[in-house]
Design a protein around this nucleic acid. Structure first.
Length: 479
RNA sequence: GGCGGUAUCGUCUAGGGGACUAGGACGGAGCCCUCUCAAGGCUCAAACACGGGUUCGAAUCCCGUUACCGCUACCA
């Protein structure tokens, strides 16, 4: 059994789309699971739409996800000569013929057929041209395309995900393989390259199912061995339509910038169109490789639901230690202007303790950054809603906070059990439930009505800062 | 229009003729825990597209219908 060779072959006409990322993921998982090779080919034959920028975006997206490829990147555009040679071989062997019909003529005939409500199929008129006439036209420099002559019969294959699929050849017209300018059409370029790259498994979106019979005919006419085909279902938006920009974020980079972890993205994508069974959902990347099996590949298109992605990210966040996520959080904090990397490094232990507190109540890296502000910045601002809710009776609150500050200040050590004892005693002395003390205090310390446990906040802030914030709140309330 | 593909809770899915009173997860509702918010635990609502077969028995197999998606270019 030969080593499986798979490839991901995006065209660089935009950013790395989540659908493309998932196709890449399944190819990669298959290669990793079965000891195969995963290759990357950039299909840049459409010069008008391809850009270096989007080629870079594809690399970046794949690298961020950790979907590494095994050999040098293949640029389809660099294989133009081989594509032409293959087209020529097909022409010479009689599997293809020259077509002198112009695009205008074709468009017109297509429109006429349309008007008559008939399906349009190229009528092979140029295939019927006498050899002498063909020669005359070529000699006269008439432009021509090369069309593949579709044989009679049926073309079918055993698809890895769909089982047997077959197409009556009569429904397939003699398709163009080489344009009049000498450049190849997609189907030729793909087959030519897949043969050259010795690809054994072609795993791609099921929007290519209709191209497959054409490609199979090309493989045969070229005398090449057929690869195994696996057609993955598409990804749709919430409205059931093929996922596109109007559904919001569709580029993997969008999710990277939203603070999604690559492993969570991969995990989520893997579950769209594949299931390991046994109700398993949250998986690390090694586990995904371990569990991956082509049997679990589904046929049905899946809807991309970001709510579940965020939940998944939260799951992965809790799987990681604060030290693991620190490299991803720090740049975001720096970008938000809350601290410099140097400042954070100087108090690393404290910083990691802070992350431990914040990550449990976060779903994304951005959530962590949002919550970190009161601990990283010197000044806090009181959230109006929190103030209105927890500081209703301002004089009484000022008094309560002053007392709480005094109690805390009197503590022999800055430790949670002592804090709790003192604060609960204060509450009891005033006939209040603990929360009636903790909540106003939380606002004084963080400016917010939501935070980690109050004693954790006190520890994170430290004695001096906590006491100072309480003082400031008392002054604010009195003033 | 032609051809192809697909069809289980709103969403991701388990399910491979009897173990189905159709399971899990997200989201939703509620309860517990609790100083808030999360996390966690528990509970509830929620689906086999429809119609015919085959079979003692169908979510599972077959056929048809419907719906949705894709392809139908000198795009990829």
């Amino acid at each position: 059994m030969s080593v499986p060779r798979l490839r991901f072959a995006p065209s660089p006409t935009g950013y790395l789309h989540v659908g493309g990322a998932r196709t890449a993921l399944f190819n990669w998982l298959y290669a990793r699971k079965y000891g195969g090779q995963f290759l990357l080919r950039i299909e840049d034959t459409d010069k008008a739409r391809s850009t270096d920028e989007s080629t870079r975006a594809i690399f970046e997206g794949l690298e961020w996800l950790g979907l590494t490829w095994d050999e040098d990147v293949v640029y389809q555009g660099a294989n133009l000569e081989r594509h032409q040679v293959d087209a020529r071989r097909l022409l010479d062997s009689g599997a293809a013929y020259r077509c002198f019909c112009t695009r205008e003529e074709l468009d017109q005939r297509r429109a006429e057929a349309e008007a008559r409500k008939e399906p349009f199929k190229y009528d092979r008129r140029c295939d019927a041209l006498p050899a002498a006439e063909v020669e005359r036209r070529v000699a006269a420099g008439m432009p021509f395309t090369i069309r593949f002559r579709v044989p009679d019969g049926t073309t079918s294959w055993d698809d890895m995900v769909h089982g047997t699929i077959s197409f009556p050849n009569k429904d397939i017209e003699d398709f163009v393989i080489l344009r009049s300018d000498g450049t190849p059409i997609y189907n030729l370029a793909v087959v030519s390259d897949d043969i050259a790259m010795r690809i054994t498994i072609v795993m791609r979106g099921d929007d290519h199912i209709s191209n497959t019979p054409k490609q199979i005919m090309l493989y045969r006419a070229l005398g090449a061995e057929l690869p195994t085909f696996a057609h993955l279902p598409m990804i749709h938006g919430l409205d059931g339509k093929k996922l596109s920009k109007r559904h919001g974020a569709t580029a993997v980079g969008d999710y990277q910038h939203m603070g999604i972890l690559p492993q969570a993205m991969l995990n989520f994508l893997a579950l769209l169109g594949w299931s390991p069974g046994n109700d398993i959902e949250v998986m690390t990347v090694p586990q995904m490789i371990e569990l991956f099996s082509a049997d679990g590949l589904l046929k049905k298109a899946a809807v991309f639901d970001t709510a579940k992605l965020e939940w998944m990210n939260g799951q992965h966040l809790s799987l990681l230690s604060s030290a693991d996520i620190e490299p991803r959080v720090t740049p975001a904090i720096v970008r938000a202007g809350l601290a410099t990397a140097g400042e954070l490094a100087a108090k690393r232990d404290w910083y990691l303790a802070l992350l431990d507190q914040l990550k449990v109540r976060s779903r994304t890296i951005d959530d962590i950054v949002r919550q970190a502000e009161p601990y990283l910045k010197d000044d806090i601002t009181y959230d109006p809603a929190a103030e209105a809710k927890q500081w209703k009776d301002r004089p009484a609150t000022a008094d309560l906070l002053r007392a709480a500050g005094d109690a805390l200040k009197a503590l022999p050590a800055w430790e949670p059990p002592l804090m709790e004892e003192a604060l609960r005693a204060l509450a009891e002395a005033r006939g209040l439930a603990g929360g009636k003390v903790f909540q106003p205090l939380r606002v004084a310390l963080t400016g917010l009505s939501v935070s980690p446990g109050i004693f954790d906040v006190l520890v994170l802030l430290g004695r001096e800062r906590s006491l100072a914030r309480i003082d400031a709140a008392v002054r604010h309330l009195a003033g």
